[in-house]
Structure formats: C-alpha cells, structure tokens
Design a protein around this nucleic acid. Sequence first.
RNA 1: GUCCCCAUCGUCUAGUGGUCAGGACACCAGCCUUUCAAGCUGGAAACGCGGGUUCGAUUCCCGCUGGGGACGCCA
Length: 475
Amino acid sequence: MSVVVRFAPSPTGFLHLGGARTALFNWLYARHCGGRYLLRIEDTDRARSTPAAIEAILEGLRWLGLEGDEPPVFQSTRFARHREVAERLLAEGKAYRCWCTPEELEAMRARARAEGRPVRYDRRCRERPADFRRPGVQPVVRLKVPTEGETVIEDLVQGTVRIANAQLDDMVLLRSDGTPTYMLSVVVDDHDMGITHVIRGDDHLTNAFRQLQLYRAMGVEPPAFAHIPLIHGPDGTKLSKRHGAVSLLEYREMGFLPEAMRNYLVRLGWSLGDREILTTEEMIRHFDIRDVGRSPARFDMDRLLHLNAHWLRQKPADELVRLVEPFLRRLGLELDETGRRRLLEGMAELVVRARTLVELAQGARIYVAPRPLQPDAKAMKFLGEEQRARLARLRAVLAATEPWTPEHLEEVCRAFAAREGVGFGKIAQPLRAALTGTTVSPPIFEVMRVLGREEVLARLDDAVAGQHAAAQQSP
RNA sequence: GUCCCCAUCGUCUAGUGGUCAGGACACCAGCCUUUCAAGCUGGAAACGCGGGUUCGAUUCCCGCUGGGGACGCCA
C-alpha cells in the first residue's frame, strides 16, 4: 500500500516551529516511502481563520521546502460532505441530537470539576425520543461512543496506548448552526483523501481515541497513527510566544537557512547514531517515523545557531552574496558593483565569523558602507592624535608598496612597526579602526587585499584628517 | 481533579542484562594569533528515587517523585 500523509495546519495563526517539524516529519516519511505528502488547511473555524494566516503558513512551508505534492485542500469547501456523514450516522442511530445549551454544559463541567469527577458530558440527551424538541434550542449532533470496554491504539511512535471507553466523551459532530466540528472534519477528510498515516503532535493523542470511534461508526478502516512529542520551550513547557520567536518565518528574518532549520528540527526526537550534521538527502534515506523518540525536546537556540553557522559555510560565495543582500538593505546598505565584488572576494573570511545572515550582513558592512566610515566608540579609541600621525606615516609607505598582497603588506607593516619602535599590535588595531571603523574584523591584510590600494589609502586619509569624528558628529 | 505520555551530562541525543556510559551544542583551560572568529588539544558534566527479577541492572517489571499533554458547539 502506498503511503499518503498530510500536514493539516489550522490557519488561526502563523506556522509554528512545532508545526514545521510535524510537516517535516510527514514530508520525510512520504519521501522515504515514495509516497505522497498533502496539505490541508483546517479552516472549519471560519471566524478565526484568515487569508493572511493561510498565506503566511504556505509561505513558511515553501521556504522550508515542504510544499505539498498537490494544491492544498481547504476543509471549509467540504462542509456538505461532512454534514452528509453526520446525517447518515444520525439516520443509522450512531449519533443523536443533543439539546443541552452551552450554559448547561459549562455548569455541568464546573460541577464535575468541583466534585473532582472526570469532566465530561453526561449523555443526558442520548436516549431521548427521536421527536424530542426543546423550544428555542438548536441541537448539536453527538456521536454515540461505547461506554464500556476499551479503545486501543497501536501508535507508531507511542506504542500501544489504551484507554477505557468510559473516559471517552460523546463528542459533538455538528454544531447547532449545522457546521461540522474539527473532530468530524479530520476524520472524513483523512478518509476521503486516502490518508494512510496520520503524523501529528502528541497533543492530539487523546483525540485519536475519539476519532477511532468515529472511524468505526462510519464503518471505515482507520489510518495508522504516529503522535510525535511536542517541542518545548527552554523551560520545559509547551513552546509559545512567551519563549520568544515561535513563528517559522521569524527564523527566516533572523537569518537562518532552511537547510539548517531542517537539520535542527529533524534531530529533535530523531537521530542517526552520532550524526549531527545531516543533508536532506540523508534524512530522506534514513528517516522512519518508527524511530522517533517519545520524550519531548526543549528548544535550544545555541544549537540552532551552530548548525546554521555550519550550513552557511557550505554555501558558495556568490550565493551568500545573494542571500545577504536583503539583510544589508535592512541596514540601509545597497550593493553596487564594487560592494558586490568586494563581498565575493572577502566572503570566505566573512562567513566564518557569522552564524546567521544577520551577523553576516553586520560583518559585511566594512566592505559595503560608504566613505567616510563612522567608527564605533571602541574604534575611536584607536584613532587618537598620536595614532593618526603614525597612520599618516604608514600611509606614505603603503602608497608605494608593491606587490599589494597580504603577505607582502604584512612584511611591510611589521618592518614599519619596528622602525616606529612599537609592537605590531600598536599598528594593527589603529589600522583596523581606520580601515573598517570597528575593532573586530577579518585579518587586516585580508581586508586590505579586498579593499585594494586606492580604497585603503582613501580610508586612511579620512582617518588621518579626522573625518571620522566629523562624520560622527553630523549624521 | 480525571485520563494519557515522558524520564541518560545544563541542552539535543547514542547505547547495552556485564561499556572507562559515547557524540554534539553550550561551558572552562591551553595552543594558534594583528582583533574577532574558525581550527586543534585537553577538562568538567548524566543513567531522578525506592523496591523487585537476575550471578549482575542505566537497560526488564512495579511504585514514588518530577515534568509534560489532553479534558470546548477551538483546531
């Protein structure tokens, strides 16, 4: 039997990290098995679903590389079919109308809670005659769930999980306005779409028991279930806004790479021996939903950063230039031909100093920012009277230095330091401050190589003339 | 409260009825060094507790504790 899985987000918000991992596991399993991976938008709650949220979710999936194999199914377009199933169940006596009002139900729950009893509908409408009516009340339709025995799930991740049927509720299938509930819609749609494996967060585990009852009532074969553990925040509770960024797209904005996200996410709950770095191809080759662990993992930003740094370095320079461009723009820097050429030249030394595209853009400023530079406070400390005088003398030397290579420049500067009677550090840091406007940068002779003689001399002139200070005073 | 799930370094994890309990991130130290990184070397760091089963349990069973999740006319 060919595998068909689906990722079914509800468009009431953005795509959550946990949802992204669920999508990834579904996608990997489908790819591994040579099956199909479908998308379904669970917009049965019309009031809370927005087009913007739908677009954001699809955008997130696209970015992660987890688009569906077919256009997404919108659950809201299938109401008629859902209702038809409920009506049939009603006709077959497998479901019944419940005339209790929300207020009554709430009171029922409150009492149960107060008395320490299980919080559950007491089924008071279950045995009412078919022609029962309650003036002014629009009934809901509930499923008749067995009250004795137990329901067992052979979950691909959780193993055998059983629950006493007495714990189950007669869940609502159709609301009083006639619209289907999530519980009905998922089951009908999963069945109609031919879903063979339902892979989702383990917060749905208890739903699976109720859904199993619905499959039985419908007289159809249920899919296999795999309930994967949730991702928790660093404090161990369910990941939420409280923990900072939880929207996948925020991670894109923070400068993370999709391959790094996939690598990070897949290792939460799944592993391949000692391997930490995994390509998507390797994941596909080895992934099996049955190997996913049952304990929840905590989100760890340091680890994500480390993985992102790794994947960043795998990229060729020209692609990094392309990727970093929007992040530079955010810093107010446009890339012209000169900037582009310098970045390409200097990228190797830039990328080892960055863990994200945001950091890469930061580091790239030294090659892109227009003259005169505006040194930061730390750099200014290296550009005092005495140091500028020395830089002026160095400038004269540099003007005649040939060839313009890092090795030779270093020789020249070391010799200069010796002549000045100071340590090499006394030359290098002021030079760095003048040339980059910072105290942290790639090796200074590398920077000089990338910048070229003309730019180096110009920046030195700026520094010697005190242009820096002036620029800083009048922004 | 009821039900369900979980439990190896701080974190992600590997692992087996007998291992010096392995790796990675983070952390610390050293090396390298013009800054910062990177890199290299080394270090500290875990089987939650109590009972069983067994010649022997981190591993199997039970209980406890701790954590998490679910209990809607939300999804």
